[in-house]
Amino acid sequence: MDRIQLSPELELSRLVYGLWRIGDDADTSPKHVQAKVEACLAQGITTMDNADIYGGYTAEAIFGAALKASPSLRGKIEIITKCGIVAPSGRHSAVRGKHYDTSAEHINASVETSLRDMATDYVDLLLIHRPDPFMDPDETGPALDALVASGKVRAVGVSNFRPYDFSLLQSSMESQLLTNQIEISLLATDAFTNGDLAYLQERAIAPMAWSPLGGGSLFKPENAALIEVLERIAVEQGLDATAVAVAWLLAHPANILPVLGTNNPYRIKKIGDATKVAIDRQTWFELYTAAIGKPVP
């Protein structure tokens, strides 16, 4: 499995295992979660993507229970988590409505809870989950810097930020924002043309892609024309169409890191197949054309 060097201090596996739905599984026992992690490690997938809000603020504790049961796992993986979304659920059930909080107080409290719930002394990468229209960069930026300096967080980044949001936060920081986790897939292609990827490429910042399979919508009947192309390429290469869809992202020169989440043991074991697919320029554009439903101009 290839690895991407985000900074001299931090590298991640090219494919990332997403824990968004870990709480939806019928079995959330430490043993079952450990089996998922081990299946990822067997393929060289060492990076685990979490967030405080996942599972109604339960996913970090579910994952942490597995780390408590098998402490040796922590040294084999990189943990990503996110903060900043406050929704009336779980420990925030008393709030009046969903909102964002990028205050120093909230970020610090969230990190302390994440460390406790995931049974770890540090998080490898902390992301601000959503751009906050009420953000004070002169408060948020130094709060992130202080967490890096403390060692509780090895590195920081953002998620769902537009280039101007990214620049605003970075302008108040000493630490470098190392990634932006955004939606990119054959069903969400805007980042290729709206400046989101270009901004990151210009700065040699590797993006992460959430929902690289369109949140499970990619293989619905309404995408029949795209599915036909995916399946033809899959047959030609002796793999499956899911691997082709992920490989399409891997082929892009921006060094995209797809985040793939599934609770199905068989599918977990097949995540790494995406690295076996060959996508040349013409194949990339064939898929892109099928995705947007028209030839490029």
Rank of each mutant, 00 (worst) to 15 (best):
D2A: 03
S7Y: 10
E9A: 11
Y17F: 15
A26G: 10
D27E: 05
D27I: 03
P30G: 09
H32Y: 08
K36W: 13
V37D: 09
E38R: 15
A39I: 05
Q43D: 00
T46M: 08
T46E: 08
M48H: 13
D49E: 07
D52C: 01
Y57R: 06
T58I: 14
G64E: 11
K68I: 15
S70W: 15
S72N: 15
E78G: 07
I79C: 05
T81C: 07
G84E: 02
A87L: 03
G90K: 10
G90A: 04
H92F: 15
A94I: 00
A94C: 01
G97M: 13
D101L: 09
N108G: 11
A109Y: 02
S110W: 04
T113E: 01
R116N: 06
D117C: 11
D121P: 04
L125Q: 04
L125R: 02
H129N: 05
M135D: 12
P137W: 07
S150C: 09
A155R: 07
F161S: 00
F161T: 03
S167G: 01
Q170D: 02
S175L: 04
L186Q: 13
T189E: 11
D190R: 15
L197I: 15
L197W: 06
L197S: 03
P207Y: 10
M208I: 13
W210K: 14
S217V: 13
S217W: 12
L218F: 12
N223T: 05
I227V: 14
V229G: 00
L230Y: 09
E236G: 00
D240L: 00
A243S: 15
L250H: 00
L250F: 01
A251K: 14
A254L: 02
N255T: 14
I256Y: 09
L257R: 12
N263L: 01
Y266F: 00
Y266C: 00
I268D: 03
K270T: 02
K270A: 02
D273Y: 08
A274G: 07
T275H: 09
I279Y: 06
D280H: 12
Q282H: 12
Q282L: 08
W284Y: 15
F285I: 08
F285V: 13
A290T: 08
A290Q: 13
G293C: 05
K294M: 14
V296D: 07
